[in-house]
Structures are given as structure tokens and as C-alpha cells.
């Protein structure tokens, strides 16, 4: 993927996201042929949309439409129930227990007629189900939480297994796409925060020189740049490999890069950076929240370690066997 192509597509997405959306982001993306774009070039479609989202701190997310498309549910009136580390289980938003399923997860943008959710059973297998929102036993709450700028709804409750329809779809397939998408959103925010920090340390002077001339500041911001660029390289592999571990690594690395950017940006922007007006906190809030969806960088890191131990080897990605791009 050419960096120039990404830049152009990203600018294009930013313009699209600025448009009026009477019918919500879902309708807007459909009208702008984003689903067709996704079919044509997933890497470009996903990276440009989600980086634009991150840059603009969009209040709605394309993650719901993306996952529905991957689960072949995009033309139905469904909303996806996403697992978040915040709600306790990073693999599924439903836990199967006997004849019932316990639900706790996050819905993006709006609640439609049905919910589609991944549920984990006693043998740690993931199955995907669909249930009517008016089935009873479900509590929906609009979430403010840490990030008041994002439209999310929390769903908690219990349903009977017999009221759920099992879908023969591949959650793993959708999860890989979703993790890559979130990684791009995190990277865009990391870049914004690095840019803010760089501007500040260039202008702000103390002890007769710009803050950015001090080695500790330069070294720390260089580390942020390395984390971001390394994540970009890993994301490229994750798109080529279509592999669960590659996507986990890419998302976890992007989350780390964004959290590192947040930490150093806050530190070097000093008291000014800690004010509401400075605006850094918006990116910090979004980073903390979106990092948690489908597994925070910390929990994914542990999960990767566990998998390596279970398998007894460290996989090497063989993307170079495919056409170079």
C-alpha cells in the first residue's frame, strides 16, 4: 500500500466524515460506496476510514458495519455486541451457561432490531448468535464513561439459548478485520499526539532553549516514532497474513504506541497539556477506550504469550512468499 494512496484516501474519508448524516454513519458509508471499496482493497478502505476516525475523534464508528460485512450480516437490521476488556471477557460478549447466555458488551452508534454477538462455551469455543432486542432480560444503557464523544451503548443481561439463532459465520475472520481496523484508529491518534508534543516542545522554551533540544525529550519522542512506525509495518503483515496472531500483535503494538504517545505527550506538554482546553485528553480518553475493545494491548500481550507457550513455538510470518507490494 502506497503511503500516498493512504494519504489521499484518508483525506477523502475525512471529507466524508464531515458530511451530514441524517441516517447515521452506516447509511453514509453505504451511500459513499465504502462496502465496495472494502471488497476492492480492504487494507486501503479500512486504514483510510479508521485513521480518519481517529484523527477526527468521530462520534460514530465504522467498526459495526465492518464486522457485520465480515459476518455477512451487513444488509440486516442488526448491531454487533463487541467484547471489551472493560466488561471482563476479551474473547466474547456472551458467556454460555447451561440453557442461558450472559451478555455484557458494547454496541456502537445505534441499537437495531437484532443483536449479533460472539459467545464462548464451556470448552472455550466461540459461536455466533443473533437475538431480538425485545426478547426481554436485556438492559441497554447509553454510556458516557471515559469518552463522552463516542456513541456507545452498553448491553447487559441474560437470554435463553433457545431464543437465540446460531449463525454459521466465522467470528475469527471478522475479529481479525476488526482488530486491524482499531489498530489503524489507534495509530492515527498516536500520530496526532506525537505531533502535538513535537509542536509544543519546539515552541516552549525554558533554561534558554526549546524543550525539544533536551536529550530526554528527544529520546522519548523518538521512541514514540519508532513504536508508531513499527506498528505500521506489523499492520501491513497483518493484512497480508489474515492470521489471528498477526492481528493480535498488530493491535497490541498499535495500542502500546498510542499509550506511549499519550504518556510522553502529557509529560512534555506539562501543566498546559493537562488542561481541558489543550485538548490532549480527548485523544487519551478515546485511546484508553478503543484499546479495550476486542482486547486491550496488555491483555492481548498476555494472551499471545499464553498461546506461544501452548503451541510450544514462535510463529514466523511468511508474508514474503506472496506478491510484494
Amino acid at each position: 500500500m502506497d503511503p500516498n494512496d493512504l494519504l489521499l484516501a484518508r483525506n477523502s474519508m475525512c471529507e466524508i466524515l464531515d458530511k451530514e448524516r441524517g441516517g447515521g454513519l452506516d447509511a453514509l458509508l453505504r451511500d459513499e460506496y465504502w462496502l465496495e471499496f472494502l471488497d476492492e482493497d480492504e487494507q486501503l478502505a479500512v486504514s483510510s476510514l479508521f485513521e480518519a476516525q481517529g484523527q477526527k475523534l468521530s462520534n460514530e464508528s465504522g467498526i459495526d458495519l465492518l464486522v457485520r460485512k465480515k459476518l455477512e450480516q451487513d444488509s440486516k437490521p442488526v448491531s454487533v455486541l463487541f467484547p471489551s476488556t472493560a466488561t471482563g471477557c476479551l474473547e466474547a460478549s456472551g458467556v454460555m451457561q447451561g440453557d442461558r447466555v450472559l451478555l455484557d458488551g458494547i454496541i456502537f452508534n445505534a441499537v437495531r432490531k437484532q443483536i449479533v454477538f460472539p459467545a464462548i462455551d464451556g470448552a472455550s469455543r466461540i459461536k455466533v448468535f443473533q437475538v431480538q432486542v425485545d426478547v426481554g432480560g436485556l438492559a441497554f444503557s447509553n454510556v458516557g464513561g471515559i469518552d463522552g464523544g463516542v456513541e456507545i451503548i452498553r448491553l447487559q443481561g441474560e437470554v435463553l439459548l433457545r431464543d437465540c439463532l446460531e449463525l454459521s459465520v466465522d467470528w475469527n475472520f471478522a475479529e481479525v478485520s476488526a482488530r486491524r481496523a482499531i489498530a489503524h484508529e489507534l495509530l492515527a491518534m498516536a500520530e496526532v499526539m506525537l505531533e502535538k508534543a513535537s509542536e509544543h516542545v519546539t515552541e516552549r522554551k525554558q533554561f534558554g532553549r526549546a524543550l525539544g533540544a533536551f536529550q530526554v525529550v528527544r529520546n522519548s519522542l523518538a521512541d514514540v516514532h519508532v513504536a508508531i512506525e513499527g506498528s505500521r509495518d506489523m499492520l501491513r503483515v497483518a493484512f497480508q497474513e489474515q492470521d489471528r496472531i498477526a492481528a493480535m500483535v498488530a493491535k497490541a503494538q498499535a495500542g502500546r504506541a498510542a499509550l506511549l504517545a499519550a504518556r510522553h505527550c502529557q509529560q512534555f506538554c506539562g501543566a498546559m497539556g493537562w488542561t481541558w482546553e489543550f485538548g490532549l485528553h480527548h485523544y487519551v480518553r478515546r485511546t484508553k477506550f478503543i484499546d479495550s475493545v476486542l482486547g486491550s494491548s496488555d491483555s492481548l500481550t498476555r494472551m499471545i504469550g499464553k498461546e506461544l507457550l501452548a503451541v510450544g513455538s514462535a510463529p514466523t510470518f511468511s508474508y514474503y512468499m506472496k506478491d510484494n507490494s
Partner: peptide, 21 residues
Amino acid sequence: WEEALGSAYMVLATLRARCWN
């Protein structure tokens, strides 16, 4: 050591991606 292992593997996989480029 799961976390340290995961972390080490992540930076190694990232290195591999980068170096190949």
C-alpha cells in the same frame, strides 16, 4: 512469564516486518 513472552514476541514480529521492508 506470559506477558514478558508476549511482549518479546511482539517486538520481534514487528522487527521482522520492518526488516523485510
